[in-house]
């Protein structure tokens, strides 16, 4: 059987804030691999370093030490402009507070992601509509985000993240602001994004209801990773 390829790899990643003697460690020598087609949950108490880890995986923060490889490309030492290019080409983001553009309609929110990739307006409108159909939001294409429920907003955020066909979706507490039913719907949707085996999903969460959607759960404490908990195909069996 062919081994899944690595989407993101972190080797000896350390992140320090401040200068001695008041230096604080957010991450201490983290080694981690995210496989293609994997749904990985990152858990841990507040201040444990999980959002820092997500930011480094997302090329938004640079590590103090260590190496980060995204889609086969080492991003260590890249300029902010080149890091932005890596994000644009490989990564999609879903945020706890949705981070939608309130002045744009639902479809325009998705079209922005395509415009950044240089797609013309006509094609981006068609692709955006297709992405909205995938998350069951096509009928809301021309309303503004303020009229949507929390679950709908998160589905829109997922459509926007998906629109650029990223290799990895990084989600920060995507269910934190949702009730249990919408939380399940959103996690089910996110989990399904990895079903074709080419895309990975990394989710930072406190929400234990999300466990059943994961392939692997990693807990982080004081900037160190604890041994991963393999979910033994629970996710795949849930699908069947």
């Amino acid at each position: 059987m062919q081994q899944p390829r690595t989407a993101i790899s972190l080797t000896g990643v350390t992140k320090r804030y401040g200068e001695p003697p008041s230096q604080e460690y957010a991450l201490r020598g983290v080694d981690l691999e995210v496989k293609q087609g994997e749904v990985l949950l990152l858990m841990g108490p507040s201040g444990s370093g999980k959002t820092t880890l997500l930011s480094i995986m997302g090329c938004i923060l640079s590590p103090t030490d260590g190496d980060v490889v995204v889609a086969g490309q080492s991003v260590t030492g890249l300029s902010t402009g080149n890091l932005a290019k890596v994000r644009l080409d490989n990564l999609g983001f879903v945020f706890q507070e949705y981070n939608l553009f309130p002045t744009l309609s639902v479809i325009e929110n998705v079209m922005v992601a395509l415009d950044l990739r240089g797609m013309n307006r006509k094609d981006s409108a068609e692709t955006a509509m297709s992405a909205l159909e995938n998350v069951g939001m096509a009928e809301k294409a021309h309303v503004y985000p303020e009229t949507l429920s929390g679950g709908q907003k998160q589905r829109l955020a997922i459509a926007r993240a998906l629109a650029g066909s990223p290799k990895v979706i990084l989600a920060d507490e995507p269910t934190a602001a949702l009730d249990s039913e919408n939380g399940r719907l959103v996690m089910d949707l996110m989990s399904s994004l990895a079903d074709d085996g080419t895309r990975s999903v990394v989710v930072v969460t406190h929400d234990q209801r999300t466990f059943e959607f994961a392939d692997r759960i990693i807990t982080i404490e004081d900037g160190l990773l604890l041994p991963p908990r393999e979910m033994n195909n629970i996710r795949k069996s849930r699908k069947t």
């Binding site: 938004i60 402009g81 932005a84 890596v86 994000r87 981070n99 950044l116």
Partner: peptide
């Protein structure tokens, strides 16, 4: 916040 989101999405 929206500009930060654009930057995070990879906007130059």
């Amino acid at each position: 916040g929206e500009f930060a989101t654009l930057k995070a999405m990879g906007a130059p």
